[in-house]
Nucleic acid binder design. Structure first.
Lengths: 111, 111
DNA sequence: ATAAGATACTTCGCCTGTCAAGGTATCTCA
DNA sequence: TGAGATACCTTGACAGGCGAAGTATCTTAT
């Protein structure tokens, strides 16, 4: 594996949006899911993750509330707004275009 | 089309390396090829392109020489060093991993 | 002749996203 | 009691993208 997380830059938001598309979740859990899905090859750094939450909330793509856990560390739960759902749809489409483009630009016989 | 230039971000160098893999070329031409391959949907901005050349040359991945054109604007030709070839190979592999990872992270039923 | 547009490269400085480092607080288990 | 997991937050440095502005030559239409 040869992953530079700088190469995933720009998809942090989309990855988070995707993780919230099945219902609300929280930072720590999202991070674990991402690590698990990537087979441990990739993780969102905490600073990156929480910076992204702020950015997404300010942009009106997610909403947050403090959990009401009576035990354990407090959690802030996030979920998608309508705009967030729209954005996820657009970004998912955009990914297909971007993927096809990079494929074409790196293609072995593209001369 | 909805292309994330932020993902493309980390691939600028690889795209340039790829364009040089068939023999020497120069900035303006590379830019046109990229625009042409992408069907006009994407172009490397000049500042981005020339910054990348500096970075790649400093890193020893490409070499440059001034062209000896007797007419027309002067051109600076670039070509790959051995290290550049190696890097292109690695990055191309890395792209496959990155692509698979984002696919997995955005997959519709990945819960 | 002249102006516009293409070819071709360069530099400056702002902006944005990533992340190392450091911090807070609670719970579990040896 | 203390280590490690859970859970969140902030600051500041750094790097890459790119808008803007500049230089110089050649071609083509008026």
């Amino acid at each position: 594996m040869n992953l530079s997380s700088d190469l995933l830059r720009g998809y942090t938001d989309t990855i988070i949006l995707r993780r919230l598309s099945g219902g609300e979740s929280y930072g720590y859990r999202i991070n674990q899911e991402v690590a698990q899905i990537s087979g441990g090859a990739f993780e969102l750094k905490e600073a990156t993750l929480y910076t992204a939450f702020r950015r997404l909330e300010t942009a009106g793509l997610i909403r947050s509330r403090w959990g009401d856990e009576t035990s354990g560390a407090r959690r802030r739960y996030y979920d998608l707004t309508e705009a967030g759902r729209d954005r996820l749809r657009e970004d998912t489409e955009g990914w297909k275009d971007t993927r096809a483009l990079i494929d074409a630009l790196l293609k072995e016989d593209a001369r």
